[in-house]
């Protein structure tokens, strides 16, 4: 089977609810974790949600952690929330530099409520945006 590049991340409603609850609970601190996934053709379908504690000393502006045995095996997606209204909804410069994962999801939640989901794949030279869908095929909100 040819491993065509992933173009879409699918997040079923129960997992989205779990993520949004995690983000809201920790607001205004940034929240993050991983989505364990199963590959379906050119899609990554989230099958479980693993929240990870934020170890940053400035948790309202940063999310920091270590990739260790809490993290699910690949394929997986790292997600974190942007909680400041001044933040952008996509990857910041520090995100691009310091997320050493092939897939990243940014959840823009300036008031604790998730307003936007944006997925990204790390390419050889730059990040490329992915489509983020519910399992109905509907694209999730993107700002």
């Amino acid at each position: 089977m040819v491993p065509w590049p992933i173009r879409t991340v699918v997040i079923p409603p129960p997992i989205r609810a779990s993520i949004e609850s995690h983000v809201a609970t920790h607001h205004p601190n940034e929240a993050g974790g991983f989505l364990g996934c199963r590959r379906q053709g050119r899609r990554l379908r989230a099958t479980r949600h693993i929240p990870i504690a934020n170890e940053s000393t400035i948790p309202e502006r940063r999310f920091e952690t270590t990739v260790d045995d809490r993290v699910p095996p690949p394929p997986r997606v790292f997600y974190h929330s942007h909680t400041s209204p001044e933040s952008i909804s996509g990857l910041t410069r520090i995100d691009k530099r310091s997320i050493p994962e092939p897939f990243a999801l940014v959840i823009f939640a300036p008031r604790g409520e998730a307003l936007s989901y944006r997925g990204f794949k790390r390419g050889l030279l730059e990040w490329r945006e992915l489509r983020v869908e519910a399992d109905t095929g509907r694209r999730l909100a993107r700002l």
Binding site: R61, V67, T83, T92, R93, I94, D95
Partner: peptide
């Protein structure tokens, strides 16, 4: 182990 640093605001 790899470390992750992410954040909504750039320095």
């Amino acid at each position: 182990r790899r470390t992750i640093v992410a954040g909504g605001e750039d320095e």
